[in-house]
Structure formats: structure tokens, C-alpha cells
């Protein structure tokens, strides 16, 4: 009697598990969109490795602010109340030279150079530690070199934030709409994010897809040059050849795609 009850419970348990799994199976598989049905926009800008050169000689607080604003308005980046300053969201922001270039910190520099306002953003690394750390591939590197976030997939573990050596990542500690006027996005064409996911600069992937250049570059008045690093004849390669540039923490081997003329 005892044995048969036990085996009945076992069988019942296993069948229940099986039924649940079977009824959920369809929900797990992705709905397949065949490749001939999904294509790129004809106006798309393509590259093998997108990159940026920032001419720090042309940076000042005002132009920096303009570029930051252009980015944040385009991407619905919220401005949280002062109380949550430590949890703010930044895609592109300003750091003093000594903070941006912690490894290239020289003695006897002029006060001006030491505190020069450097524009910092995601370096779109060739070898991104955040992608390696992400347990769900919510952060991934595209064929064109852009390190992108899939907000649908992010579980908010913040491993990528620990992995990023540049502090380029922000976490939505609350609903970002709390920091947007009336909870409305500044750019309705672009989504806001939900609370609990990580975000960062996307090199304006959504603008490149329709043939536009990144929003910050557009308003940079020549301080930023954007282009394909793998194309020898591109303007960005020309600028790199003609100027001495440095990269942030290049010694870590992450291969930043953002270069700085100093």
C-alpha cells in the first residue's frame, strides 16, 4: 500500500512536470522571421568598425553640454531628482582630464590641462569586458563593432557595470520616466527604458540604421569625427594619421574605438 502510494505520487509528479513543460514549449521558441523578410533600411550606413575621434582641443563646457543634451534628448535619458544623484543615468558625460585618463596622469601639468573637460562615453570596445560578463547576451557586439544593449533581455544583474573599466554603464534604479517631464519621452520615436535594466551609449545605432550620423557628432562643431575605422580612406583614418591620439586605459586590452586628440 505504502509503495503503491509512493509510486503513484512519483508518476503524478513527473506527469505534471511534463505537462507544464509541454504547454510552455511554444512560448520558449522564437518566432522565426526568415531573412528574406527582414532587411536593412536602404539608407543604412554600414561599416566594419565604427569609431570616433574626439578633439579635446575643441572641447569646452558649452559644447560638451550641447552634445550631452543632444544625446540625452534623442534617447530619452532622464534627469532624476537631486536625491537620486548617485543613481543617475549618463550616456555621454564630462570628466576632468585626470579622471578620464587615470593612467596617463602626468606630473607638472598645467592646471588647465589637468582639469580639461573631457567628453566621455562608451568606448565601443573591440574586446568588450561587458559582453563577456553578460549572462544573457543582452549586451552584445554587432558585426559593425557597436556594443549594443538588448533592453528586452537584460535581467539587471549589473555584472556588466562591474566589468566595464570606464564607468560607461548606468542602471535604472527606478522607472526612468520619473525623470522625464510629465513622464513623457523627449523623443517619442525612441523608447524609454524600464526600471531594472542597464543602459549606455549605443553609438546612435538607430540613427545609423537610417543613414544619419550620431546626435552628438551632429552638434559637435567639428570636435567629434565619426566613421569607419576599418576603411583606410575614411576621414576618421585620415584624422588619426595626422594627429597624435590616446585612448582610455588602452593597456587593459579592451581596444576602445574612441580616440582622443590631446
Amino acid at each position: 500500500m505504502k509503495d503503491s502510494r509512493r509510486s503513484f505520487l512519483k508518476i503524478a509528479g513527473v506527469s505534471a512536470l511534463g505537462l507544464t513543460a509541454a504547454s510552455n514549449a511554444h512560448a520558449i521558441g522564437e518566432y522565426f522571421i526568415p531573412s528574406e523578410k527582414a532587411i536593412k533600411d536602404q539608407k543604412v550606413s554600414t561599416a566594419d568598425r565604427w569609431g570616433m575621434v574626439i578633439d579635446t582641443r575643441k572641447l569646452n563646457h558649452e559644447t560638451n553640454k550641447k552634445m550631452m543634451e543632444a544625446c540625452h534628448v534623442t534617447h530619452n535619458v532622464p534627469t532624476l531628482p537631486e536625491k537620486y544623484k548617485k543613481q543617475e543615468i549618463k550616456w555621454v558625460w564630462e570628466e576632468e582630464y585626470s579622471n578620464a585618463f587615470t593612467e596617463i596622469h602626468n606630473e607638472f601639468q598645467s592646471e588647465e590641462a589637468e582639469h580639461a573637460p573631457i567628453l566621455t562615453l562608451c568606448n565601443q570596445c573591440e574586446n568588450p569586458p561587458c559582453v563577456q560578463a553578460c549572462p544573457t547576451k543582452a549586451t552584445f557586439k554587432r558585426a559593425d563593432g557597436i556594443v549594443l544593449m538588448d533592453f528586452h533581455r537584460c535581467i539587471g544583474c549589473r555584472f556588466c557595470m562591474a566589468a566595464c573599466p570606464y564607468g560607461s554603464r548606468s542602471f535604472n534604479f527606478q522607472d526612468p520616466r520619473n525623470g522625464l517631464e510629465d513622464g513623457k519621452p523627449t523623443n517619442p520615436q525612441f523608447p524609454t527604458r524600464t526600471k531594472g535594466v542597464v543602459e549606455k551609449c549605443n553609438f546612435c545605432a538607430e540613427r545609423l540604421a537610417v543613414g544619419k550620423i550620431p546626435a552628438c557628432v551632429e552638434v559637435s562643431e567639428g570636435a567629434l569625427v565619426f566613421g569607419d575605422l576599418s576603411d583606410e580612406n575614411s576621414e576618421i583614418r585620415k584624422v588619426l594619421k595626422e594627429n597624435y591620439t590616446i585612448r582610455r586605459k588602452a593597456s587593459l586590452g579592451t581596444g576602445p574605438s574612441v580616440f582622443y586628440i590631446v
Binding site: 518566432y31 522571421i33 528574406e36 527582414a38 532587411i39 533600411d41 549594443l148 538588448d150
Partner: peptide, 24 residues
Amino acid sequence: KEHMQLLDGWRNSVVREGQRVYVA
């Protein structure tokens, strides 16, 4: 019946593959 699965497929296609245009 299937708009949710279609949208799920679309979001992968757009975000992950960069293919943003659907040919009906």
C-alpha cells in the same frame, strides 16, 4: 492570433540583427 510572437521576432531582428524593415 500571432501578433505577440511576430513582435517578439521583430524585436530580435531589429535590436540584434539590425534589420529594421519587414517585407510582407
